[in-house]
Design a binder for these strands. Structure first.
Length: 873
RNA sequence: GGGAGUUUAGCUCAGCUGGUUUAGAGCAUCUGCCUUACAAGCAGAGGGUCAAUGGUUCGAAUCCAUUAACUCCCACCA
């Protein structure tokens, strides 16, 4: 078979992905094997694949493929998330482009549009994951709003309500004036803002004096219902018991006193607007202040504001500052930097707002969920996130689970005509409850009004590991019993609270077991300048373009080579080149092996020796890889197998067994080499599934439906460490000869002789002779009377006669540099050994080691000096 | 304001409980090679007072303290 010198991934990748899928190789059903489950962090249904997904899913695929090869029943369950706010925002935008306002539509009409959108865009990201090689069990693809998942959510809501953990109440919430919904604390991002601090003059009632209040939000003065000072503030004692007049508004408000106020800030006077600031709200509660809500839901001024009605909050700020100025009620303006909360989704400034919302009590759920992480039942990689987790769990607040959105799971609460409500899984059940509660058997479904709000998206995501296997609706079904708890969760640290913590809570509450044993936190993918990837910066490469350019295997390697757990990774496209080059290397190694003509010949010594060495080397490296995997050090595991293939197998092993040009290879060596290749492909497969499948299939005839995916991970064999170390010396000898050839410009074709002075085991002679074109290796009996080049390996000196090709000055220079190094080294060792305290305190084996270093260095020095003298004479 | 983390070659990172290393890897760089698997390659070389200072110790990149820079998380300072 003629193979191109360069590997072209595209065709290969499409072919094998189709094969895997057609043969049902990704699918899992419960059986007698040990389960190994991963649930995908469901990407937003409207999303397209970005670099974060690439990283995250590559890691999951590596883990799942490896588990599969290790004989476990691997199940990677995929799906998408309905992403309430994000999706609704996109649908609203698309409708707006068509000139349709959301408010013009009924709920049902809007939902039809949303489902259309979902059906159009919903599959994109999952298709893209296939390009990456993700071995998800696609038959299990779920959606957080499909029937099973929706039923699960509603069931859990009702259950938690019945347990008294869900309540309804008026609270200060983070209001998103663009999305027109409340959002949770976790969805607010605080950003530093270059703003102004305005000093407003509040006239003291009945006096001709003013109290000055510093505020960043002058537009809220219509909502002021008090001024507050610190009772311990000496400079404001004169305000005690007074009333002041709100500027422009001309409303009288009392001066109250509370130690909350910072004496040092501004003038020590605080305006209190209970409806629009969380702290003011608390003051309002404490001192029974009235609360005036001056904003509409969209952030414009409401009727209650009395002035500027209908204007946007930021417009009002400008206007009111002007008006205050004109009225002489503005003392001064200072530059001021403060932090303002923004909605994560819509990126508009959050408005603290009092509103009726649904909450979930968290204390009871949090306690056991904290314990399982602290005692490592659920292990975090890296472990530093245990701290973050602990802090949040110990200070957890109730979760605002209602959203004023239509796209999502509608809250199953039904209001009765005469007040009150019931919570039930279906309208019919609600009606039954309502009849009893209202003592009115004549109630009909039309009398009930279902709550308009939808649930927070995370209220479905937190059930994901359970609901994927239908464990909420049927807690004892065979699937959940088999696949749960899952093995590993791979996700970003940014959703440790949103998602990870809550899944642990839900898992313990509804399955009484942890949802996963290990959590691998990936870093955030940044650009090579360390900036976050974002659409506006345009610094995020399109993953599909990368795959087209470097192949999926190449991109997977690129991601993994720079992705130690928990560290951010500055992604540089160039790293994919390294992956692509490596694939090409494997390809060409395969071409070489397959080009050999096989004959029944005796096995040469050098081949026997090479095989003996590489057999040990491969097992030793595999043990290292296994160890690295157990610590989730995937980058290092990949680098280890990369070096095994490139350096040890290609650069050493293949060079050693390679027959001379045109010559045949003996069958035994050939078969063993194929076996090594097979072994290496298996070790590589979890990282680079496509090329390994292609070559594994080409290695020998396979049955239809066979795949490297199910080839068993090789069992470890005993390892002869001494043999491996000994061979490292052999490599040094060969390198020494190479250096001499290079420096003296002696072609590889020119055969040379090698003399040895000192201790030497001729175990690997055949290899040295073959690789370095050495005619004979012999112990040095007496000084040679020709020019030589020398080098040291350990304490043994190797001498190559080189006739008249020597450059004496260069040689002397080199030896002198060596002598300088060893003298310095010897000095540091002598210093240690000369130190009585060292000899007395250090462990005997350490002292012994230093002594050995000393004698080795001494003998090396002696040899070097001897060579130097000889050269100089 | 509180907490966590990071700081080792040009870049990305190893270096676990201090002593087989007067510091290692990959990439990049430089030099020589189109040597019949691979120039997406081969052979070789250079490159770091381990952020700074002080301490503990016979011995510190490694432990402790202080400082600096960066990153992240949490928090109601108008």
């Amino acid at each position: 078979m003629e193979l191109a010198t360069k590997y072209t991934p595209e065709e290969v990748e499409n072919k094998w992905y189709k094969y895997w899928e057609d043969k049902g190789l990704f699918h899992s059903e419960p059986d007698a094997r040990k389960p190994y489950t991963i649930v995908i962090p469901p990407p937003n249904v409207t999303g397209v694949l970005h670099m974060g997904h690439m990283l995250n899913n590559t890691i999951q695929d590596v883990l799942i493929r490896r588990a599969r090869m290790k004989g476990m029943n691997a199940c990677w369950a995929p799906g998408t998330d309905h992403a309430s706010i994000a999706t609704e925002a996109k649908v609203v935008n698309r409708l707006a482009e068509q000139g349709i306002k959301k408010t013009d539509l009924t709920r049902d009409e809007f939902l039809r549009h949303a489902w259309d959108w979902t059906n159009e865009h919903g599959g994109i990201i999952l298709k893209q994951l296939r390009r990456l090689g993700a071995s998800c069990d696609w038959k299990r693809t779920a959606f957080t709003m499909d029937e099973t998942r929706s039923k699960s959510v509603i069931k859990v809501f009702c259950d938690l309500y019945d347990k008294g953990l869900i309540y309804r109440g008026v609270r200060m919430v983070n209001w998103d004036p663009k999305a027109l919904t409340a959002i949770s604390d976790e969805e607010v991002v605080y950003k530093e803002q270059q703003g102004k601090l305005y000093y407003l003059r509040y006239k003291i009632a009945g006096e001709d004096k003013y109290a000055i209040v510093a505020t960043t939000r002058p537009e809220t003065i219509m909502g002021d219902t008090a001024m507050c000072i610190n009772p311990k503030d000496p400079k404001n004692q004169h305000l005690h018991g007074k009333k002041v007049i709100v500027p422009l508004v001309n409303r009288e408000i009392p001066v109250i006193e509370d130690e909350y106020v910072d004496i040092e800030f501004g003038t020590g006077c605080l305006k209190v607007t209970p409806a629009h600031d969380i702290n003011d709200y608390m003051l309002g509660e404490k001192y029974h202040l009235p609360s005036i809500d001056i904003f509409n839901d969209n952030g414009t001024i409401s009727e209650a504001g009395g002035m500027y009605v209908g204007m946007d909050r930021f417009e009002v700020r400008k206007q009111i500052v002007e008006d205050l100025q004109k009225a002489g009620l503005l003392e001064k303006i200072e530059d001021y930097t403060n932090k303002v909360g923004f909605s994560e989704r819509t990126n508009v400034a959050i408005e603290p707002k009092l509103s009726m919302q649904w909450f979930l009590k968290m204390d009871r759920l949090a306690k056991p969920a904290l314990d399982v992480v602290m005692n490592d039942e659920v292990k975090f990689y890296p472990a530093k996130y245990k701290n973050t987790y602990k802090h949040w769990m110990e200070n957890i607040k109730d979760w605002c689970i209602s959203r004023q959105l239509w796209w999502g799971h509608r809250i199953p609460a039904y209001y009765l005509p005469q007040g009150g409500f019931v919570v039930a899984e279906t309208a019919e059940q609600a009606l039954e409850k309502a009849k009893i509660q209202s003592n009115n058997p004549n109630l009909t479904l039309d009398d009930l009004r279902q709550d308009e709000d939808a649930l927070d998206t995370w209220f479905s995501s937190w059930l994901w590991p359970i609901s994927l296997f239908d464990g909420i609706n049927h807690p004892d079904n065979p699937e959940i019993a088999y696949y749960y708890p899952t093995a590993d969760l791979v996700t970003g640290p940014d959703i440790i609270f949103f998602w990870v913590a809550r899944m642990i809570m839900a898992g313990l509450e509804y399955q009484h077991k942890i949802p996963f044993k290990n959590v691998y936190f990936t870093g955030i993918v940044r650009d090579k300048l360390g900036r976050k990837m974002s659409k506006t910066l345009g610094n995020s490469p399109d993953p599909i373009m990368l795959i087209e350019k470097y192949g999926a295997d190449g991109v997977r390697m690129g991601m993994l080579l720079t992705a130690p757990a928990g560290n951010d990774l500055p992604f540089d496209e160039a790293i994919c080149e390294q992956g692509r080059n490596f694939n090409n290397k494997i390809w060409n190694a395969f071409r070489l092996v397959k080009s050999w003509k096989v004959e029944d010949l005796p096995q040469p010594d050098y081949a026997r020796q090479a095989i003996e060495w590489f057999k040990n080397k491969i097992y030793k490296t595999q043990a290292e890889i296994d160890d690295l995997f157990s610590k989730y050090r995937l980058s290092e595991a990949l680098m280890t197998v990369y070096k095994l293939f490139w350096d040890e197998f290609s650069a050493w092993y293949l060079e050693m067994v390679k027959p001379a040009y045109g010559q045949p290879i003996d069958r035994n060596t050939y078969d063993t080499t194929l076996a090594f290749f097979d072994h290496l492909l298996k070790l590589l497969h979890p990282f680079i599934p496509f090329i390994t499948e292609e070559l594994w299939q080409a290695l020998e005839p396979r049955k239809d439906g066979e795949s490297i995916m199910y080839a068993q991970w090789p069992e470890l064999d005993s390892i002869d460490e001494n043999l491996i170390n000994d061979f490292e010396n052999t490599k040094e000898i060969i390198a020494g000869i190479r250096t001499i050839r290079l420096q003296k410009n002696i072609a590889n074709k020119v055969a040379m002789e090698l003399y040895v002075k000192g201790q030497y085991q001729p175990t690997w002679n055949a290899i040295i002779e073959k690789i370095s074109n050495i005619q004979s290796i012999s112990q040095l009996e007496h000084e040679l009377d020709v020019n030589t080049a020398n080098f040291l390996v350990g304490t043994t000196e190797f001498i190559v006669p080189i006739g008249d090709m020597i450059d004496k000055d260069k040689e002397i220079e080199k030896i002198e540099a060596d002598i300088k190094y060893y003298e310095g080294f010897l000095l540091s060792v002598m210093k240690k050994l000369g130190n009585e305290k060292f000899v007395a305190h250090a462990k005997p084996e350490v002292v012994e080691l230093e002594r050995k270093k000393k004698s080795d260095a001494e003998s090396k020095l002696a040899t070097l000096k001897e060579s130097l003298n000889k050269l100089k004479s």
